[in-house]
Structures are given as C-alpha cells and as structure tokens.
C-alpha cells in the first residue's frame, strides 16, 4: 500500500519501524499482557490467601455469587441490548425485598408475585422511555432509582421491614442442597433457561441485532421498542428476584440492603467481557464475571482489606477492562 511505501525507510535492509505494524504489535502486546497479568494476579491471590481453597470459602463465594450473579445477568441483558447499564439495580432489589417481607403475612406466593411484578412494571416503564422515545439509559435509571426510593420511604415510613415472627415459609430460600445454598441452584437454573431462550427464540436474535445497530434493526422491521422493553422487563425481574433472596437471607428489608449491588452488577457484566457498546455477549458471561468479581471481593476480604479497597479495586478493574476492550477493538480494526 502506498502509505506503507511512503513511511518505509528508503535505505537498504529489511523494512523496519513501519508505524502501523509496531503500533498494532504494541496494542496486541498490551492487551494480552494485561489479561495474562490480571489472570496471574487473581490466581496468585487465590492460592496465596490463607483460607481461600477451603470448602467453607467456596461455599461463601458461591453464596455471594447467587446474589451478584442474578443482577449481573440482568445487567448483561441490558448491555447486550445496546443500552449500557441500569443504575437502579440496588433500588429495585431493595424495594422488592421490602415488598416481599411486608406481604409475607398474606402468604409467600402473593409476596413473591407482587415483588416480582413490581420489578417487571418498573422495568417496563424504563424500557419504554429508553427504547421507545430514545431517552438516555443512565438518566432514566437514576431518575427511576430516585422515584423507587421515594415510594419505598413513603410506604415504609422509613422503617426497616421485618418478616412476621415465627414465619418459616421462606426458610427454604436460605436452605442448602448438597452443601450449597438454594439460591445458587436457582441462579444456575435461571442462567441455563435464559441462555436457551435467547439462543432459540426470535427475541434473543432480535436483542443482539438491536444492540448491534438499532437503526438497521428498525429498518429491518424489528419492533426495537418492544425488544428493549423486553430486555428491561427481564432484567428488572431478575433484580427484584435477587432482592427477594437478599431480603429472605437478611430477614430484614430496607433501602440500605442494596449495598454495592449496582456496582457489582455492572462490574461483573463488564469483566465478563460483554461489549458495553452492545450486540455481543451471553448471559453465561455475566455469570462468569460475577464469579470473578466475587472471587476478587473474597480474596480482599480474607486478606483483611476494608470495604473501600474492595470498591476501589472493582472500579480499577472496570476501568482497565473497558480500556483493554477498546484497545482490542482498535487492534481488530487496524
């Protein structure tokens, strides 16, 4: 190519210092180097941390994966649909936990149903605003989070919701089957079913196309609005489900229950390798990311680092992963 000739040295000898080749090599080296370094760090951290490779700890990691995985899978769906991520994850989960515990006196089935329905409804509204009229996801979801918190504060009068005394109808949610907690089985079941659904259904294929290029999808006659509404409904349903599990686990529900769910969910989806620009990725990747994030949290916790360090590390990991993904993309395009 002419640009290569123009930039190549004119003297004798092999062509050296071709800027395109060196730049590409540098980007590739940086990308793979960083991934290898990261993997090595996690493995080193895991092996060298006292108490990491014990059955108790594996159980503990899986218990936290049960919650984070659920919200990460929901976030993955929103991300695949090309709409970044939701900042209402924690608020939706907290509200679901409060509804679930407050309605327990009317029976666990009703409590479960209303909590999950709330998730679907708030998801549908956000999906309509994002997918239908093209409003910005981040802003719609922080606005929604604010509204959900307002309603939750109003309805609970600021009090922490406790389950009725002696109620054991939800104890099975905290039970164990073959040493692992029940929510872990629920999570793996959900991911399996959702993955099959996305692979086999028209919705799944449309979701990826909408995420890849919404204009093209619209031109192809896909009802992009419904697809985004669907993605938000399923995602918000999963946030609410995680909230119910969290409420049952803590046996109390308040807005504080959300903790770092929102950031963990986004970090897990990003670390799982789901393209933040949309169109690519699977729900299994969300689960994989959640396991990695839970492992990192666990290593830091076992080594006695504070909550602040844990959040800091997650932020740095998110930053590094999105930058690396971009470098990788540039490599592919160059």
């Amino acid at each position: 190519m002419s640009t290569d000739l123009a930039t190549a040295p004119t003297g004798p000898g092999p062509v050296r210092g071709n800027p395109r080749v060196t730049r590409e090599t540098a980007i590739r080296a940086a990308f793979y180097g960083a991934i290898a370094l990261f993997a090595a760090l996690v493995v080193y951290g895991a092996v060298s941390t006292h108490g990491f490779l014990t059955m108790t700890n594996v159980r503990a990691i899986l218990s936290s994966v049960a919650f984070v995985g659920m919200v990460a899978v929901g976030t993955a769906l929103i991300m695949i649909s090309g709409n970044l991520f939701s900042l209402a994850v924690g608020s939706t989960a907290a509200a679901a936990a409060m509804i679930f515990l407050a309605l327990l006196p009317h029976g666990i089935v009703l409590a479960f149903a209303v909590a999950l329905l709330m998730g679907v409804v708030v998801g549908a509204v956000q999906g309509f605003l994002v997918g239908g009229i093209g409003a910005n996801t981040i802003i719609v979801t922080i606005g929604a989070a604010s509204l959900i918190q307002g309603v939750a504060l109003w309805a609970s009068a600021g009090a922490t919701i406790l389950p009725p005394k002696g109620d054991t109808s939800f104890a099975w949610l905290n039970g164990h089957i073959f040493t692992f907690a029940v929510p872990i089985y629920i999570l793996f079941g959900t991911v399996f079913v959702l993955d099959q659904f996305l692979r086999r259904s028209r919705f799944g294929r449309q979701l990826k196309l909408v995420g890849e290029n919404v204009e093209a999808a619209r031109a192809a006659g896909i009802r992009t609005g419904w697809v985004v509404v669907g993605a938000f409904c399923i995602a918000s349903f999963l946030f609410a489900f995680a909230g119910v599990e969290l409420g049952a686990f803590n046996e109390s529900g308040s807005l504080l229950i959300e903790g770092t769910q929102t950031y963990d969910a986004i970090a897990a989806a990003v670390v799982g390798g789901i393209a933040i620009s949309g169109g690519r990725g699977s729900v299994w990747q969300g689960l994989g990311g959640a396991i990695l994030i839970a492992m990192i949290s666990d290593i830091l916790l076992l080594r006695g680092y504070s909550e602040g360090i844990q959040i800091l590390v997650k932020g740095v990991v998110v930053f590094a992963v999105v930058v690396l993904a971009r470098l990788n993309r540039m490599r592919a395009e160059s």
Partner: peptide, 13 residues
C-alpha cells in the same frame, strides 16, 4: 463509570 466506582472506593479508604 470505572472512575466513579474507583474514586468512591478511594473516598471510603
């Protein structure tokens, strides 16, 4: 987003 989470952690630290 990365900056947001990382700096929040830094504030806690």
């Amino acid at each position: 987003l990365g900056g947001f989470i990382a700096l929040l952690g830094l504030v806690y630290v």
